[in-house]
């Protein structure tokens, strides 16, 4: 039996896909996500027009989710890397500059712990700088 490789680190719910479709249409551009930390609306994923948030060598690219690059700061990734993230949405009035907020909804992360086998077969990560160089 062969073990699946290049398993995704970030999944997405149907509802979140619909919101991304709506936002892409409204802004007429690709989108990106950066997972926040810290107080208030921290620990929430932030959605921006692609390129609006400058990533660099201290960010980790965790893969693409529904066509959008998903980043997290490297030090935060150290504590999150063993968990599978699912991008979801919930009704709510978040603050921050995340672009879905005026719709009265908020992107949200749900988490699951990877099994050891899964953990050893995840897609490789890159730094934000490496992603920029590739594009």
């Amino acid at each position: 039996m062969t073990q699946a490789t290049n398993l995704p680190r970030v999944l997405i719910s149907e509802a979140a896909m619909e919101v991304i479709d709506t936002l892409r249409k409204r802004f007429g551009t690709d989108l990106m996500f950066h997972q926040s930390g810290g107080c208030c609306d921290g620990s929430s994923p932030m959605c921006f027009e692609k390129g609006d948030f400058k990533v660099g060598a201290s960010d980790i690219w965790m893969g693409k989710v529904y066509g959008c690059d998903f980043f997290m700061s490297a030090d935060q990734f150290e504590y999150w890397k063993h968990t599978e993230l699912t991008l979801d949405v919930t009704p709510g009035r978040g603050s921050s500059f995340s672009i879905e907020i005026p719709m009265g909804i908020r992107f949200l992360i749900r988490s699951r712990i990877f099994t050891m086998e899964e953990f050893e077969n995840l897609i490789p990560v890159k730094t934000g700088e490496e992603v920029l160089e590739e594009n």
């Binding site: 926040s36 930390g37 107080c39 609306d41 921290g42 932030m46 921006f48 948030f53 921050s96």
Partner: peptide, 13 residues
């Protein structure tokens, strides 16, 4: 600014 890290970075940007 008082808030979270991603918005903090964006504001610094």
């Amino acid at each position: 600014f008082t808030g979270e890290t991603t918005t903090g970075r964006l504001i610094m940007q």
